[in-house]
Design a protein around this nucleic acid. Structure first.
Length: 453
RNA sequence: GAGGUUGUAGCUCAGUUGGUUAGAGCGUCGGAUUGUGGUUCCGAAGGCCGCGGGUUCGAGCCCCGUCUUCCUCCCCA
């Protein structure tokens, strides 16, 4: 017999943790619904043909792949065994665990296009799996809460995402955060302006590290990535833009005036800003960050990332606009924009900042004691009436010593214990003990029920 | 995927240059006038020292492998 263990990067959640997690889920779900999003769910398992190639080479490597059932090695030749694990994997595995909720959603849209009301606003709260190396705030199984809109180019969606992020985090008590926003078109424009068109990918990988490694090392990396000294010189304004938010739109517009796509990106972002302002969001925590790139693989417009300030934790939320995600499934031209909240990271942040309300885990309000068979029989009737009145109640299952029963109530933080012994059965007046204050009153059942209304 | 780090009772940790029977605190369980929890006192249970191999007369301690933990890189929620 071996000791049981958890798979790497996975966790159990006890009642106390579940109370906190549900508090987060409930808050996010409520706000998604308030913004008109409808729930869907998709399977944990997807065909690898759906998942592969959507997240880049590294993403493909981080996919959990499922071995084919039965004799997965059936028909494999010796030569195929020798080809290396990458090619072999595709022969012995054709399914995998979903890596995110966006790609399965794209598949869902394509497969259900005729039934969907466009623009389609859906939310989805489910776990995803990544064969990553676990670290702080990084797990192999974690929950994402996604809200996406497909079927419209309107920048109102971007603005609504900004609003939802603010409402969710403020609703959870996370007040100090920054919503970073950028636009892929701005990045494309910058690449054009510095004379390296379409090179925004490698450019971003380097620039993204600015606050981590500093300007000099970024420039060094740009050089290594094949950017000319001239291009790097032309990139100078970006460092000023990264540090100075005042008149940032004017400065950016001026810098990118010579690039059509860049100018469009600036105009789009400015429009989002105006819409957020028109909504009347109190003190937006919005920041234009021209170095924000994020994955870049499928984002074509806005790019979002949310950081909680004052804690060491990666982004707690991220998203953006993708113009052609369903294109890979044979349905081109459908634009979508969405946001994903990382519940597990939000949980860690809230735990560190002590933002969870007290007593979230109380489930039972009244526990009835159990003396003997007679008291139990009487208690069952009382139990029914308590429950019918909408009170969470339980009857202690064994006629144990009272000490033990009270200890149980205490440990479970049950606020009231109802004592029913021979005396109470005779008189019909029950003893209700407030476990917090220690006070005990004699009350009829009717009075007790009245107290809880 | 690369590099580092960690593992001893349910939990947090001691454990000497390798030397008899591996300890503490907290927790758990039992008891201290059989209808009253938190405090106190008494007592008890509980360890293949992560797992596998090696060196040695002898390994919790040294060596190798493996799993796990946490961290940096990569990437991300």
């Amino acid at each position: 017999m071996s000791k049981p263990s958890l798979a790497r990067g996975t966790r159990d959640f006890g009642p106390a943790q579940m109370a906190k997690r549900n508090y987060i889920f409930d808050t996010i779900r409520r706000i998604f619904q308030r913004y008109g999003f409808q729930p869907i769910e998709t399977p944990a398992i997807e065909n690898l043909s759906v998942l592969m190639g959507k997240y880049g080479d590294e993403g493909d490597q981080l996919l959990f792949k499922i071995l084919n059932s039965g004799n997965f090695a059936d028909g494999l030749t010796e030569a195929q065994w020798q080809e290396g694990y990458k090619k072999l994997t595709l022969k012995v595995s054709e399914k995998g665990l979903r890596y995110d909720l966006t790609v399965p959603f794209a598949r869902f849209v394509v497969m259900n296009r005729s039934d969907l009301v466009m623009p389609f606003k859906r939310y989805q709260i489910q776990p995803v799996w990544r064969a990553d190396r676990p670290q702080r705030g990084r797990y192999r199984e974690f929950y994402q809460c996604d809200a996406d809109v497909v079927g419209t180019d309107s920048l109102l969606c971007e603005a609504e995402i900004v609003l939802m992020i603010h409402e969710v985090l403020r609703g959870l008590g996370v007040m100090d955060f920054t919503v970073k926003i950028n636009n892929r078109k701005i990045l494309s424009g910058i690449a054009e302006i510095i004379g390296a068109p379409r090179q925004e990918g490698p450019m971003c990988v380097a620039i993204d590290k600015l606050d981590k490694i500093g300007k000099e090392k970024v420039e060094q990396e740009l050089l290594e990535r094949g950017f000319s000294a001239e291009a790097i010189e032309k990139l100078q304004p970006i460092y000023e833009l990264a540090n100075n938010q005042t008149h940032i739109f004017d400065n950016l517009r001026q810098w990118l005036a010579g690039s059509e796509i860049g100018s469009k990106g600036v105009a789009e972002l400015e429009d989002v800003w105006i819409k957020v302002k028109n909504f009347g969001l109190p003190s937006p925590q919005l920041q234009l960050d021209v170095t924000l790139a994020r994955g870049l693989s499928y984002y074509t417009g806005a790019i979002f990332e949310v950081k909680a300030n004052g804690v060491q934790m990666g982004s707690i939320s991220g998203g953006g606009r993708y113009d052609n995600l369903t294109g890979t499934f044979g349905m081109p031209g459908l634009s979508g924009v969405g946001i994903s909240f990382g519940v597990d990271r939000i949980y860690d942040v809230m735990e560190e900042l002590k933002l969870f309300p007290e007593n979230q885990s109380i489930t039972t309000q009244v526990m009835i004691t159990n003396f003997d068979a007679d008291a139990e029989a009487y208690g069952l009737g009382v139990l029914r009436q308590l429950r019918e009145a909408g009170i969470n109640a339980e009857l202690y299952p064994d006629a144990s010593k009272l000490k033990k029963q009270f200890d149980y109530a205490d440990r479970k933080r049950i606020p009231y214990v109802l004592i029913i012994g021979s005396e109470e059965i005779q008189t019909g007046v029950l003893s209700l003990k407030n476990m917090h204050s220690g006070e005990q009153q004699k009350l009829t059942l009717a009075q007790i029920l009245g107290n809880f209304v």
